[in-house]
Design a protein around this nucleic acid. Structure first.
Length: 882
RNA sequence: GGGCGAUUAGCUCAGCUGGCAGAGCAUCUCGUUUACACCGAGGGGGUCGGGGGUUCGAAUCCCUCAUCGCCCACCA
């Protein structure tokens, strides 16, 4: 027996354990089934579930469950990511609370501490994923720092190095002066900031009293200036090109060069050039052979390259000092307010300093070519298609990828330096030592590269490293390439692009056929949820309060393509109610003796109502299938919602109550079987979205020996179940009943009052229908048909149904004038529609140019409305006659 | 500066290849008919952001403007 109320928490725990125990999540490599693979985007190993996770993993689980039920060998490959920078920040903060920094600890101790933290919190995210109902193959869980995945990383690094696609280079990079690491361009977030534009006078050499004015937002960097650029066609400065100016505070003489980079319309038109600390200036300097003077140390404090009075100053203190000194010298011409974009590290929030260092780079442009081609040729397609443009835009302008990080938590780069600085790149120290021995003609002391790799370097290998590569495992052969990758647009560049590049390079095949890009879940103001903003809605909180199924259904229903999700709690509540509705319907069916009948064939039903609901069920199944096939989770949800609530509960269960309580044993048995059958189909169709409650209902309905719903076959219903005659009859009946109910309600006729009704203007179909379903009229509209006492329309309220008018005799309580007004209003509305149709149908251009089926449709509609109008008119005239 | 998206009921949003403007929530009215008040029945509520254009016909396609949001970009 089903409980009186559905209690999600208990059911969710019990069912999840049962699934896992039964091995329902496990892929079946040795089955004859066609594989279906989804690679789970690995969340941070020490992270915890947020709403973005809830969305992405719900959608993935829906697809996996759908395809599993459709008979595919479903592999949802789970795992976690070591998340280098993010995790180092967290552990760094933990240490900071104890007044310790990581350098006090040393590399080895620090890494130990991170592993401890992983042991402490590492299970959290996967536990939470289980609470979400995620049916991943947990036995195959992987971690990016696993031995196997680390071997894959080393193999890839070494291979790309030997192919010349990974190299070491001295370039300007984005430097985080607090974390002391480089980050890639993608990790830089430009934040609009209100600042100042200082106009500074640089004295022209040999022309006392003459100044060249430069404008800058970062006056402290002038200490590293090695030139000033003006536009070659800027008349104002033409005679200065080739001359020298004297750098104030420093005294260095620096050249004025002509370069297109200088924009005459910006600032003063003359721009100071600091090659060591600005990406543009670096290029300008290179073009003109300017000196590169690095003035910052790794903390972004001024170094010994600047005059003594500034040495050791932190960059903003330096700015204040430089400005004060320039002011004292009268060299500040003016100061303007200025809005500028300041680069920040997206993780640490620190202001980035462009800094000249040696780093490891990957030739992304080369790797991007096959990836671009793969998407162009449709070997991988994006859904929605829109995102392909974003992908192309970035890939076609891709920059060298800086893959080294000055961190400790991650894959240490497999490179060793000889005594003379020569690099040996190899998969192991022994291999490197062997190479070195050959090179030096004997054993040599090697020191290992300290840097680790960008986290995304290892996650880029995820689609094949998790399957055992570099070993050629059976899993690799079977599950690569995957079918669908589900992710948010925010990591298309970070992750999707890298997986495509690495997958194509090392497997020669795309890692997935389809990339489904979903929206971001945002807060009420449309802001990205983040810890720092403090605007997080906790999915676990919603699960506690409304049940997991309600949250899952909500996220699916809101996942319309191309639109961000602003999560409203009222939605979750509404879909919780939907789950309750299903529960109560199932409970009612159980109480009414509706049990699944083995071998029951809905096509054998005699009763119209059963033939009708069979067709409606088939229609729903087809619609849900199409929706899920095309990633329209929202449409799948809406079809199910309307079918289960609006059709099955609101109408079918009401229509069949008299049958279930009636004397006709045959009709009762057919209807009981049918009710159970529809419920069974519905829980199948709903299972991917609401796995828990559907499994629970299914097991009550079918019994435990029937097997679990999670592995039950997806409904494949014959289109012949749709019976047009039954559908037409029931639709018309619903229209009749609704019309009568509306009139009753509008006129405030007490719902309990039984009303005598007289039928007028009925066509033959309506006459037959009313006779057949008289009991429904009685029960669901509370009317009884009797021979009209007299023909007078006195006291009658008239409801316009489908092909008949129902005159309700309600005695004296009718306000004739009000009733006439009501009818007149309806007539006016209908006449309006008819007028529009008449214009259209009288338009020769329409008749000549519109598609024939459209014309036919419009004519039918015209005829239908005309019939309604006529009956309304007749009803009105009867009142006139009183 | 470039690109993308959005603008539809009080709120959150559907509306596909043009052909009857929809849902959920909220609101109002009525309701203890034994599945369900997390419910049932019914109602009100819209110049589809503005302006052009294409078309027999536009919420839908095109142009333009406005507002909002996001992504990318080296403008001192």
């Amino acid at each position: 027996m089903l409980d009186k109320t559905y209690r999600p928490a208990a059911v969710e725990t019990r069912q999840y354990e049962a699934w896992e125990r039964a091995g329902a999540f496990a892929a079946q490599p040795s089955s004859g089934k066609i594989p279906y693979t989804i690679m789970m985007p690995p969340p941070n190993v020490t992270g915890s579930l947020h709403m973005g996770h809830a969305l992405t993993f719900t959608l993935q689980d829906i697809l996996i469950r759908f395809e599993r039920m459709r008979g595919r060998d479903a592999l949802w490959q789970p795992g976690t990511d070591h998340a280098g920078i993010a995790t180092e920040i967290v552990v760094g903060n933990q240490l900071a609370e104890r007044q310790v920094n990581k350098h006090d600890l040393g590399r080895e101790k620090f890494i130990e501490r991170v592993w401890e933290w992983k042991a402490e919190s590492g299970g959290t995210i996967t536990r939470q994923l289980r609470r979400l109902g995620a049916s991943a193959d947990w036995a195959r869980e992987r971690f990016t720092l696993d031995a196997g995945l680390s071997a894959a990383v080393r193999r890839v690094f070494v291979t790309l190095y030997r192919e010349g696609l990974i190299y070491r280079d001295k370039r300007l990079v984005n430097w985080d002066p607090v974390m002391h690491t480089v980050i890639s361009d993608l990790e830089v977030e430009s934040i609009e900031t209100r600042g100042k534009l200082w106009h500074i006078r640089y004295p022209v050499e040999g022309e006392p009293g003459r100044f060249l004015v430069v404008a800058t937002t970062r006056p402290e960097t002038m200490l590293g200036d090695t030139g000033v650029a003006v536009h070659p066609e800027d008349r104002r400065y033409a005679n200065l090109v080739g001359k020298l100016v004297q750098l104030p505070l420093v005294g260095r003489l620096i050249p004025v060069v002509a370069d297109d980079y200088a924009d005459p319309k910006t600032g003063s038109g003359a721009v100071k050039i600091t090659p060591a600390h600005d990406f543009n200036d670096f290029e300008v300097g290179r073009r003109h052979g300017l000196e590169v003077i690095n003035i910052f140390d790794r903390d972004a404090h001024l170094n010994d390259a600047v005059p003594e009075r500034y040495r050791g100053l932190e960059r903003f203190a330096a700015r204040r000092q430089v400005l004060a000194d320039l002011e004292a010298l009268g060299l500040i011409e003016k100061v303007e307010d200025h809005v500028l974009m300041v680069p920040h590290h997206d993780r640490s929030g620190e202001i980035i300093e462009p800094w000249l260092t040696d780093q490891w780079f990957c030739n992304a442009a080369e790797l991007a070519k096959p990836a671009i081609a793969a998407v162009e040729e449709g070997r991988t397609r994006f859904v929605p298609r829109q995102w392909e443009n974003t992908f192309f835009e970035w890939m076609r302008n891709i920059q060298p990828w800086c893959i080294s990080r000055q961190l400790w938590w991650g894959h240490q780069i497999p490179a060793w330096y000889g005594p003379d600085g020569r690099v040996f790149v190899a998969e192991s120290e022994a291999e490197a030592a062997a190479e070195a021995a050959v090179h030096y003609g004997g054993a040599a002391l090697l020191t290992r590269e300290e840097d680790v790799l960008d986290t995304w370097f290892s996650s880029g290998l995820w689609p094949f490293s998790t399957l055992g590569w570099p070993e050629e495992t059976p899993e690799l052969a079977r599950y690569y390439p995957g079918d669908v990758l589900v992710t948010g647009f925010d990591i298309i560049f970070f992750w999707v692009a890298r997986m495509l590049m690495q997958g194509l390079h090392f497997r020669g095949e795309v890692p997935f056929r389809t990339v489904y890009i979903h929206a971001l879940v945002r807060d009420g103001r449309g802001q990205k949820m983040s810890k720092s903003r403090g605007n997080i809605i906790d999915p676990l909180d919603l699960i506690d309060r409304y049940g997991c199924d309600a949250l899952r259904f909500t996220l699916a229903a809101l996942a319309s393509p191309g639109r961000d999700i602003k999560l409203a709690e009222s939605r979750v509540e509404g879909f919780r109610n939907f789950a309750t509705k299903l529960w109560n319907a199932a409970r009612y069916a159980e109480m009414s003796g509706c049990a699944l009948v083995p071998g029951f064939d809905p096509r054998g039903c005699r009763l119209t109502v059963n033939r009708w609901i069979a067709g409606a069920t088939q229609g729903c199944a087809a619609a849900v299938t199409v929706a899920l096939e095309s990633f329209r989770f929202d449409e799948a949800g809406h079809h199910l919602y309307h079918f289960l609530w609006g059709t099955f509960c609101d109408w079918y269960l009401e229509f069949t109550k008299p049958i279930l309580q009636g004397e006709d044993a045959g009709a009762r048995a057919e209807t009981q079987a049918m009710t159970a059958w529809v419920l069974a189909q519905t829980v199948h169709l709903l299972h991917p979205l609401m796995p828990f409650i559907t499994e629970e209902v299914w097991q009550q309905l079918a019994g435990t020996e029937a097997g679990m719903l999670i592995v039950a076959p997806w409904p494949d219903l014959a289109p012949e179940l749709h019976d047009p005659a039954a559908a037409a009859e029931m639709d018309a009946l619903i229209e009749d009943l609704s019309a009568i109910r509306a009139v009753r309600s509008e006129l405030n006729i007490p719902p309990g009052a039984r009303v005598a009704v007289e039928i007028r203007d009925a066509d033959s179909a309506a006459t037959a229908r009313i006779a057949t379903h008289a009991d429904h009229f009685q029960r669901l509209a509370r009317v009884s048909f009797k021979n009209a006492a007299g023909s007078a329309a006195e006291g009658a309220v008239q409801a316009i149904g489908a092909g008949a008018t129902f005159a309700l005799h309600i005695g004296d309580i009718v306000d004739l004038a009000r009733e006439k007004t009501r009818l007149a209003k309806e007539i006016a509305k209908v006449e309006g529609d008819l007028a529009k149709l008449a214009t259209r149908l009288a338009n020769p251009a329409f008749l000549a140019k519109a598609k024939p089926e459209v014309i036919e449709e419009q004519r039918e509609r015209d005829a239908d409305i005309r019939r309604d109008r006529d009956r309304l008119q007749a009803a009105y005239e009867r009142l006139e006659a009183v």
